[in-house]
């Protein structure tokens, strides 16, 4: 309701239950931090389970890991790291009051890199896994040694990377909304907390991938 009422460029929006704007911004930032802590425990539970099984069934997990391509994992790591950089630059750009175009450009690159990440993930990796009959529950077919454990590895692989991909998609959605608001001139050096908070989220998603990459792709050396 109140959002559509605001048209003036860069006008801060104070929700009625907050006393001051800094209080509102701090609350949003803390809210995101607490949310990220929940997320850490969410992925953490998964990482812990994965680690236990990796210890128990190392040969099977090593075998499974050899079926996925380190190359793509490494490229995707680079893609996300660069996207974190452009995200940080986008925040910086609103903070110091650069032109709208600069901010929009940086947000655009960040989203584009997110899309590149997803394309590599889905088209160059998942699709190939599917063709190789590596998708548990759909077409898993592998008869070599440790078959049950390879299957378990792939279950974790799809669960963990899938959950992460959902986070990337949500992140792109948030950035899209923020780009629209930027274009409408909603943010200024005085008011940019939504972009800052979205940045926190984006960096977090990046960090999760930095843990996922070695956990899944680099088991037992090559």
């Amino acid at each position: 309701m109140s959002e559509s009422a605001i048209t003036q460029a860069g006008r801060p929006i104070l929700e009625e239950h907050f006393e001051t704007l800094p209080a509102q911004e701090e609350a949003r930032k803390l809210g995101m931090w607490v949310f990220l802590i929940t997320e850490i425990l969410f992925f953490g539970g998964l990482f812990a389970t994965y680690t236990v099984y990796r210890e128990l069934y190392l040969p099977g997990f090593t075998q499974g890991s050899h079926f996925i391509e380190v190359k793509w994992g490494a490229i995707n790591t680079a893609v996300l790291i660069v996207s974190s950089l452009t995200m940080a630059l986008a925040i910086r750009s609103v903070q110091v009051g650069k032109r709208k175009g600069t901010t929009l450009g940086l947000l655009g690159i960040t989203m584009l890199l997110g899309v590149v990440f997803l394309c590599i993930k889905f088209i160059l990796e998942w699709r190939v896994d599917y063709l190789h009959h590596h998708v548990p529950g759909i077409n898993f077919d592998y008869a070599g040694p440790h078959a049950a454990h390879v299957k378990l590895f792939f279950l974790f692989y799809f669960y963990m990377t899938g959950l992460h991909a959902i986070h990337v998609i949500v992140g792109i959605g948030i950035l899209l909304a923020l780009s629209y608001l930027t274009w409408r001139g909603r943010f200024s050096p005085k008011y940019y907390s939504p972009i800052e908070v979205a940045g926190l989220y984006w960096h977090f998603v990046d960090i999760i991938w930095i843990f996922l990459f070695p956990l899944l792709y680099l088991i037992g050396g090559r």
């Binding site: 425990l41 969410f42 539970g45 998964l46 529950g137 049950a148 299957k151």
Partner: peptide, 25 residues
């Protein structure tokens, strides 16, 4: 609440996956 509940979500989802996909978890 914030620290413990996500672990339950993961646990139940893994259980449901085993039930649906018959993968030994």
């Amino acid at each position: 609440l914030v620290l413990a509940t996500p672990v339950l979500a993961i646990t139940l989802s893994l259980m449901a996956m085993e039930r649906f996909l018959h993968i030994g978890i």
